[in-house]
Computed example of a mutant assay.
Amino acid sequence: MIDHAHDLACVRDATERLLTAAAALDNASVAEPSRLPGWTRGHVLAHLARNADALVNVLEGRPMYASAGVRDADIERDAPRPLDVQLTDVRESAARFQETGDAPADWARTVELRNGVTDSASRVPFRRRIEVELHHVDLGIGYELEDLPAEFTEREIDFLTQRFSGHGDVPATRVTDGTHAWSTGREGAEPEITVSGAPADLLGWLAGRRDGAALKTVGGALPQLPPL
């Protein structure tokens, strides 16, 4: 069962970790490339701020973004800002998200995200946690996939294997860290391939942050996953 209150608290903690780490940067390093192709660290911070506001829209029943073009333009507009402005924006937008999440609401209702995707409102705080945790790693400032809370890593692997479940371009695959196991890819068949490895490496592969070279595969080559 999804505990949205727990996830809101975890989002708050993850945001504070990110803000504390990013405060050690300077204006020059904010303009340097992040680990995401084509994005500087400023792009990542700008995206985090605008994503918080977008998820407020979702929880309040408005479109997540006015359009894909507006989303991209807002990130490009905000990316070059000085560090202090970036951090203030991330902090204030995060506070708006927390305030919205703390308000009484029907957490069982269905909400709409981007591209017609729908989900339970109760999962929105975890979706925000994903953004904060993974983009902290994307900043390339010393926070690695191995540093993510174990509970988060397990849940995100579960979330992503569910996302690729039933995808016709992904062979039926068993994913395991040696303790837990998940199924993903095409349905209606026994898994063709087993992918195993450390939790951080599995998450990195599923989230498009690592190439999977550290993983072991049995039954075929490592599946190529569609973009998130």
Results as ranks from 00 to 15, higher is better:
2 I>E: 00
5 A>L: 15
7 D>Y: 03
11 V>C: 04
15 T>K: 07
17 R>Q: 10
22 A>S: 06
24 A>H: 13
24 A>S: 07
31 A>E: 05
31 A>C: 08
35 R>C: 05
37 P>D: 11
38 G>S: 10
45 L>W: 14
46 A>N: 06
46 A>R: 06
51 N>M: 09
53 D>G: 04
53 D>M: 07
57 N>F: 02
59 L>K: 03
61 G>Y: 08
63 P>V: 01
70 V>F: 03
71 R>H: 02
72 D>E: 15
73 A>I: 11
76 E>A: 13
76 E>L: 11
76 E>C: 02
77 R>Y: 13
81 R>V: 15
83 L>G: 01
83 L>V: 03
87 L>I: 05
88 T>G: 08
88 T>C: 06
91 R>Q: 12
93 S>M: 01
94 A>G: 07
94 A>M: 04
96 R>A: 11
97 F>E: 08
102 D>N: 06
105 A>P: 00
108 A>H: 11
108 A>C: 04
111 V>I: 04
113 L>D: 05
115 N>H: 06
116 G>Y: 03
118 T>E: 07
119 D>W: 08
120 S>W: 04
120 S>F: 03
123 R>D: 07
126 F>C: 00
126 F>M: 01
127 R>H: 15
129 R>K: 00
131 E>I: 00
131 E>L: 06
134 L>G: 04
135 H>Q: 00
135 H>S: 04
139 L>C: 01
140 G>T: 12
142 G>N: 13
143 Y>I: 15
145 L>V: 11
146 E>M: 12
149 P>W: 12
149 P>I: 12
150 A>M: 14
150 A>H: 15
155 R>A: 03
156 E>I: 10
160 L>H: 15
160 L>A: 04
163 R>F: 07
165 S>E: 12
167 H>C: 06
170 V>Q: 02
171 P>M: 13
174 R>A: 11
181 A>R: 11
182 W>E: 10
183 S>M: 08
188 G>H: 10
189 A>P: 03
192 E>K: 02
193 I>A: 01
193 I>G: 04
193 I>R: 04
200 A>R: 14
200 A>D: 15
200 A>L: 15
203 L>H: 15
204 G>T: 14
204 G>C: 05
205 W>L: 02
208 G>S: 12
211 D>M: 09
211 D>F: 00
213 A>E: 13
213 A>Y: 07
217 T>M: 11
224 Q>P: 09
227 P>Q: 08
227 P>H: 09
